[in-house]
């Protein structure tokens, strides 16, 4: 009926949706894999912090330096902390954090679950009285859904510090004045939606990474492929969610 490409596309979309729903179906009934979940949270959250921190710091610094000339042209140099803090908090840091995590965590999950699938470790788990979906997928998706927002919040802090340094490369803004201006500018309407959307980013990264790994095709090539497509697809999905989020925020007038 449908062309093959379209058919494959919808097939994939349907499978991913089913997989995503299965997370809710199985994630909230016992037995709960708390130990494994904490382990995954550690890997996803704590272990990604240096990478996220460095990226956020650089983004804060760079965005500030890049924004300065335009503001100087308008004679609104004083607005630098205000403008930069809003754009960092609302958009740049959450998305950069999510993208970095899609690269690091998404590919890691794709490869890990992929190789577990290929070497029958997933089957072995099932034989050993463990629901592999709960043990592997639910824990990971939970971990990403909860940890990405935390990473994004810490990323916000670090990127704002980077912006502070950026403001002081050319101009002089005292520590206190900088934070005063930042908190004067940002509102709950800036912060809350931006944090809320990172939950969805995290969920998307987890679901896509696990899906690609869990249904990895046989062989080592399949593992590489699932890692790769996990990154590509979750990065794309992050942007789509971001687009949806901005529309919803706009409709609900949360700005």
């Amino acid at each position: 009926m449908l062309p093959k490409v379209l058919n494959n596309f919808f097939d994939e979309m349907g499978s991913i949706s089913r997989f995503g729903f299965r997370f809710f179906k199985e994630g909230f009934v016992p037995r709960y894999e708390f130990r494994e979940m904490i382990r995954q949270c550690y890997y996803v959250g704590y272990r990604s912090l240096p990478l996220v921190g460095l990226t956020a710091f650089i983004m804060g610094l760079v965005i500030t330096i890049q924004s300065r000339p335009t503001l100087v042209e308008f004679g609104a140099e004083d607005w630098l902390p205000k403008m930069v803090s809003v754009s960092l908090l609302r958009e740049i840091t959450p998305v950069i954090t999510a993208l970095i995590c899609a690269g690091k965590i998404g590919s890691g999950m794709g490869a890990e679950l992929g190789s577990m699938k290929v070497t029958e470790q997933i089957d072995a788990m099932e034989v050993s009285g463990t629901n592999p979906f709960k043990y592997l997928v639910v824990t990971r998706v939970f971990a990403t859904t909860l940890m990405i927002p935390l990473l994004a919040i810490l990323g916000d802090a670090i990127s704002l510090y980077g912006a502070y340094l950026g403001c002081n490369i050319r101009g002089v803004v005292s520590w206190q004045l900088y934070w005063n201006q930042v908190f004067e500018t940002i509102t709950y309407g800036d912060l809350i939606p931006s944090v809320l959307k990172t939950f969805f980013f995290g969920y998307a990264i987890g679901v896509i990474g696990c899906f690609k790994g869990y249904y990895s095709s046989k062989g080592t090539e399949g593992v590489g492929q699932s890692a790769n497509s996990a990154v590509v697809l979750s990065s794309l999905l992050i942007f789509i969610i971001d687009l949806l989020a901005v529309q919803i925020i706009d409709i609900l007038n949360l700005t």
Binding site: V118, E120, D123, A124
Partner: peptide, 27 residues
């Protein structure tokens, strides 16, 4: 019990944890 063709040892666990796994998981 099932002995897998590719052994299916959990890469992220030590030999001890690998062996403990079915014991712990089977209640």
């Amino acid at each position: 019990a099932f002995l897998f063709q590719s052994n299916a040892l959990y890469d992220s666990m030590t030999v001890r944890e690998n062996l403990e796994f079915p014991l712990r998981r089977h209640w």
